[in-house]
Structures are given as C-alpha cells and as structure tokens.
Nucleic acid binder design. Structure first.
Lengths: 197, 197
DNA sequence: TTAATGTTTGACAAATTTGTTAAACAAAGA
DNA sequence: TCTTTGTTTAACAAATTTGTCAAACATTAA
C-alpha cells in the first residue's frame, strides 16, 4: 500500500484531542489514550514513535486550526460587523466543543519553555488588528489599543467555557443552565463589543 | 517542640505554588518541587505523606484564598462602584503574580472528576450577585443576568494573563509591552463593565 | 499461491517517578 | 550529660509509564 492508511493513526489522534481538548485531562498517559481509542498502546508508538511526538503533532495541528479559523473568518467581503458576528458564532461553537484546547496549548508551551505560538503569523492577525483600528476610526467601536479589543473579545468567548467547572461550582449553576447561559453569550458578547447598533 | 515548625513545610508549599501558579508547570514532579525549594525530596513525603496530599492541600488553600478575596472585597461600606474598582485592582494584582492559579484549579478538578469548587459558598458569591442585580435595577450598569456580568468581569481580568504566552505569540507583543498592556487593563476593564460614569 | 509490505499484539526492558526505611543529625529539656 | 523528639539524608523498593522487539496477522500485488 503506497498511500498510508489513515484509519488507526487518525483515530488515535482524534481520541487524544478529545481527551485533551474536550475532557481537559492534560495528564493523560499513552495508555489512557490507547484505551479510550480502543487500540493497543503499542500502536501509539508505531504511528507516532513517542508520546512527545504525538503531543507535538496535536499541538501543531491545534495551532494550525486556530490560524485557519482566523484567516478564513477575516477574508471575504462581509462587513466588519458581519465578520465579527461570524467569528463569535464559529469560535464559540468550536470552544463549546473543545473548551480546553487553549488550556492544552498554554500548558504545553509552558512545559517546554518554547513558544510554538508565533507560528501563527502576522499575516493572519495583523490584518485583523488593522480592521479593528479602521472600525475604531469610523467610530463604530470604542477607541482603544486594538490588541485590547482582541483580548477582550477572546477573553469573553473563551474564559467562561474554560473555567466551566469552577464557575458552576462558585455560582451554583447546573449543567443544563450552563449550556443555556453559554448560548446566550454569543449575542451578549457581540452587544458588549459592538455596542452602537 | 510542641508547636510544629512551619519552616520547611511552608517552604515546600510556597515553592509548589510558585511552580504551579506562577510558572504554569502543572506537570511538576515531587523532585522538581524539591529541587526548586532546595530540599531533599524525602521531605515532601515527610511533611505531606504523598504527592496527592500536597496537591490537595495546595488546591484547598487556593480555593480558600479565592473565597477569602471575594468575601473581604464585598463587605464594608464602600459603594458598589468603589468595591468594583477595588476588586479589579486586587484581583488583577493577584492574577499578575499567579496567572496560572485558576488553570491549576481547573485541571485538578478535571483530573479527579471532583468539584471542590462548590466549597466556595453562596454565602460569598450570592451577596455579590445580589449587589450586581441592585446596581442594574438602579440603572448604573447594563441589565443582564448577573452571572453573565460576573463571568464577563472575571474573563476580562483573568484570561489575558492566563493566555499570556499565546497572546504574545499571536500578536507579537514583547514581555515589557505586555506588562504595560496588563496594567492598562485595570482602568479599561472598569470602564467596560461600568460605563456610565 | 506466494512474496512482500504494512499492521497489530504480547512480552519484555528501560526509564521515570513515587513511596519507605533506617540511620545520621540537630535541638531542647530533664 | 543523656535522653527524647523532631528533622534530614541516602539507599532502597515499588509502582507507573514509556519504549522496543519479534512474532502473528492481514492485505495486496506478482
């Protein structure tokens, strides 16, 4: 077979992502991952050579996905307002599916004192920041350093999902109520960020 | 000696907190902690019996500190506005010193499928939520579910520090610039949250 | 069918990390 | 001083986790 069969390899990788990004189990062992995928642990080594390489690949792909998201959402001829709506919608949906993805990226980059992050190029983020600046110049959104705007936006979207367990505990919110609140946030965040209708 | 000497025990615990909360190394081993504290690893077991118990103690104390913060900041006869300013000031300072404290709490609670979090009682959070509701009734802040208000507030404060490494990478921000931005955020967050001056 | 190639498995080895023990050491009181 | 108690250390044992290997198995092409 010349073209590599992606079945098992993909299964392992997807399972790893589920464990890390969805369940937030950052300490998962290769055994944990293999069990969850229903395969022999040796296959993890067969396809990825080592635990470290599996982690690095998962990290790289997650960063790629983030970059992809950023770039696809900020091209096209939609208005800034519509792009913003779309970004909030897509990013919130993704974060609801994978609330701990960024948490994984943060701990992995801390772990190796190595910043993979700047591979997400200016070519994607800088145009976004420029768009924000333009919109401020037009008076459509409150003037501030565009980087603050971006931090505000991503904070409001990501943090409540990231800290779900804590928030639920602190505020005595049930699981079903929490989902409701998270869905409401899409609209709420847009109104906070882009107030002058 | 009847009263237990807290020297070494406290040193180990403080070092563990520094590693987890300040450096974000959630995977630190007992050896890592002992080395960083400059003591023999056996002492970790002497004082805490096991790694697990050290982790649990650190987790408990971190939750206690959060509860403490919440309760001390929301008693007294300051106006809501002043309390809010104070909360932002104190919480941001704490989070700048310990940006990964919540990250640690989140992963630890995920790890054991156990919610220590609800030990932070209604007795502290509920009065806060009531204050927020009151302020909304007065028309001083935008009306919404007070829980959203609280999530917004903590998101804006915690997330940019939590995701510092990523943000710096994404937006090409230097360390010194980042500190500047974080200090600006205190005022910026207050204005966002409490807009009608 | 047979050979070749790729996949899966269990058994084993190595490495890492945690936990235990006994002995050395230090400080304080009788 | 001597004893007692608490602290620190090194050596060791146990447990966990990662990585390797050869053999079994499956699939495809000649």
């Amino acid at each position: 077979m010349s073209i590599k069969d992606k079945g098992t390899e993909q299964l392992i990788k997807d399972t790893a992502k589920r464990i890390f990004f969805a369940e937030g189990k950052l300490h998962a062992t290769t055994q944990d991952i293999a069990d969850a995928a229903g395969v022999n642990r040796t296959l993890v080594h067969y396809y990825f050579r080592s635990r470290k390489l599996l982690f690095e690949q998962v990290t790289q792909e997650a960063l790629d996905e983030l970059r992809q998201l950023m770039s696809t959402l900020f091209v096209g001829k939609l208005s800034f307002k519509e792009k913003l709506k779309k970004l909030i919608n897509v990013f919130m949906d993704e974060t609801m599916a994978y609330p701990y993805r960024e948490l994984f990226l943060i701990t992995e980059t801390n772990r190796h004192d190595q910043v993979h992050a700047d591979q997400v190029h200016d070519s994607h983020v800088k145009p976004f920041l420029n768009d924000i600046q333009e919109e401020m110049d037009k008076g459509n959104i409150k003037a501030m350093d565009p980087r603050h705007f971006m931090m505000n936006l991503f904070s409001l979207m990501a943090y409540p999902l990231l800290s779900g367990t804590l928030s639920k505990g602190f505020m005595r919110i049930s699981d079903s109520e929490y989902v409701k609140l998270m869905k409401q946030r899409k609209q709420l965040i847009f109104e906070m960020i882009y107030p002058n209708k």
